[in-house]
Amino acid sequence: MSKILIIAEHDGDTLNPGTAKAVSCAQAIGGDIDILVLGEDITEVATQAAAIDGVTTVHATSAAHLAAPLAANWAAEIAAAADGYSHVLAPSSTFGKDVLPRAAALLGVNMVSDIAAVDGERSFKRPVYAGNAIAEVSVPDGDTVVATARTASWPAAKEGGSATVNERPAASEDAGHTRYVGLESGGGDRPDLQTARIVLSGGRAFGSAENFEQLYTVADKLKAGVGASRAAVDAGYVPNDMQVGQTGKIIAPELYMAFGISGAIQHITGIKDAGTIVAVNKDADAPIFEIADIGLVADLFTVLPELEQQLG
């Protein structure tokens, strides 16, 4: 039977929802599920991890050199903790993508990125070419399965569990060559594009950075994240980190509303896992209408003020 170790993602105080999504993926694989919480003074995070349904044991390792999620230190600890496990999983967030390949290389195995579906204990489906193809992939017998679970593909496992918390001493030492300086959180109070329930995006049709303010106003009323097409980024209306699409962020909010975005393939690949897609564009022939669940042919400069008003 599979024995699965999930690496908890957290900020020192709070468990990231990606961890519970990785638990869902592990439940699809089947087997015993444990969680490894690394950090310093992580009792609270370990308690949160133990409350996820379906988890047997939470191993909590507190050490000064593990305080920040530095891949150089965490990967060594994960590789040591992986002993006896058939699978090591993490969410495919920037955290999982940074840490887990390093751990896989230390374990001497290749890694499966972005599990979108489980076909068997060692067989999975994952998107390639920015989601334009779905590939079947399996891990050779004898190798530890090291993989990230694609966060857009898995619901968070429910709470209600009562796993045992085991204090596990650190097996690694500080690598000494990597130092954490700090984190500057982006976007102020606006929700992160990757985790926001609603995302509003704007395209080149906005015509200027100033006009994007109208989108921000509506977004703030909906507590929505704000994205943009590559065309809007290239035109300098918004910074690069707002770009949604193949070369930007690939997102899967419950509701995605595209304003003045024509729907280039580059953009569509970044949003096609969204729950509901709304398109507002004055060009009735814009390709985005081909994939939109709800379309409105209208000028965004008319629609946005109306939305602001009607959303109260």
Binding site: D11, L70, S93, T94, F95, D98, H177, T178, R179, Y180, V181, G182, L183, E184, S185, G186, G187, D192, Q194, T195, D241
Partner: peptide, 11 residues
């Protein structure tokens, strides 16, 4: 560039 914003490290 991390999901939570901009993280700085020295290597």
């Amino acid at each position: 560039e991390v999901d939570a914003g901009l993280e700085t490290i020295t290597v």
